[in-house]
Computed example of a mutant assay.
Amino acid sequence: MSRTLTRLTALLLAVTLTGCGIFGKEIDETEGWSASKLYSEAATELDAGSYEHAIELYQKLEARYPFGRYAMQAQLDVAYAHYRAEEPEDALAAADRFIKLYPQNPYVDYAYYLKGIVNYNRSIGFLDRFIPTDASQRDPGSALDAFKDFAILVERFPNSKYAEDARQRMVYLRSNLAMNEVHVARYYMKRGAYLAAANRANHVIQHYQRTSAVDDALEVLIDAYRALGKDDLAADAKRVLDLNRQEGRFIADEVRPEKVDLARRLWDYLQLDEN
C-alpha cells in the first residue's frame, strides 16, 4: 500500500511541476477563445502596460484567426505594443507588415505616423530624455528615416488627423539635418579639407533654405573660400550673408515639437468593443 501511495504522490508532484499538464504538455488557457475574446484580453493587457503578454495574445489571435477586422487591428496594436516596450525594430517591422498587407486601408495613415514617431524618438536618443543635447550632432540616419515616413504621410494623406503634427516634426527634423551638414563642414575645416567644407556649406545653402543653418553655412563658406585663396567668392558669400542678416531673412531655430502621446487610436473607430 505504501508503495502505491508513493507512486501516486510522485505522479501528483510531476503534474504540478509541469504546470498542471499531463505527459509534458502544458495547458493553454486561451485554447478555444474566440477572436473577440483574444482581442479583448490582449487590449486589456496592453492598456495595463503588460506589453509582452499583450503581444503574445495578439500573435495568437493572428495565428488562429488570420482574417477579419480583429486580425487587422491586432497587427496595428502589436506595432504599438512594441513601440511602448521600447522595441523599435519590431515596431517598425509590424507597421511595415500592416502597410504591405493593407495599403488601401483607411487607417494606414496611422501606420506611417507610428513609423515616423518611432524613428523620431530614435533620433532623439536615450540621453536626450534626461540631458538636453544638440540633436543635430548625432547620426542623422534615424532622423532621415523619420522625415521620409512623415513626408509619405503628408503627401498621401494630407487630411489625416496626424498630418499637421507630422508637418511640424518635418520642419524640426529638416532644421536639424541642415545643422548636421554644417557640423560636418566645420569638421572638414578643422581637418584642412577646405574644398569639402565649401561643398558641404553650399549643399546646405542650396537644399536647406529657410532654415537657421544657412547663416552658419555661409560663415563656413566664407572661411573655406578664404582658405582656398578664392577671395572673390568669399567676398560674394560675405555680401549675401550681410544682406540676408540686414533683411532679417534668417529664421530662428525651430522649437522641438512636444512629445506625442501616441495611443491605440483605432479601438473606437472600428467599434470592436461593441461585439
Rank of each mutant, 00 (worst) to 15 (best):
D236F: 05
N121D: 15
E26Y: 05
I124A: 13
L270D: 08
L270Q: 11
S142Q: 14
D149H: 10
P103W: 04
S34T: 15
A74M: 10
Y65Q: 09
E258Y: 05
Y269W: 07
N202H: 13
K190E: 12
Y172H: 06
V108Y: 02
Y188A: 04
N199K: 12
L243S: 14
I131G: 10
N176S: 07
L114C: 05
F147K: 00
V240S: 14
E26M: 07
E155C: 04
R97W: 03
Q206E: 15
R174E: 13
L243A: 15
N275Y: 07
N180P: 08
D261E: 13
D215Y: 14
K115E: 01
Y113G: 00
T4I: 10
D28W: 04
F23R: 15
E254P: 01
P257Q: 06
L46H: 11
L76E: 07
V78Y: 00
K238F: 07
A234M: 09
R69Q: 13
Y172D: 02
V184M: 08
L76W: 04
I55A: 13
V118A: 02
A14N: 09
K230L: 12
L272N: 03
L101T: 11
A235G: 05
Q73H: 11
L5A: 15
A111Y: 00
T4G: 05
K115D: 00
A201M: 08
N105G: 04
V184D: 05
I222F: 08
Q59W: 01
R138E: 07
D47L: 09
A91V: 03
H183P: 00
Q271A: 12
D215K: 13
Y113Q: 01
N180M: 06
N180Y: 11
C20Y: 11
T9S: 14
L38T: 07
Y120I: 02
S2E: 15
P66N: 12
A178E: 12
F98N: 04
A163C: 08
Y107N: 12
T30W: 12
N199W: 05
G141V: 04
D47E: 15
N119P: 01
A79I: 03
E56F: 13
S136F: 09
A35K: 13
V214W: 03
V260F: 08
K100L: 08
E155S: 13
R129F: 02
H183A: 09
G24H: 11
A197C: 11
I205H: 09
D165Q: 11
D134T: 03
L218H: 08
L11D: 08
R200Y: 10
H82L: 01
D134M: 07
E164T: 06
A79Q: 05
R265Q: 12
T6M: 09
A252R: 14
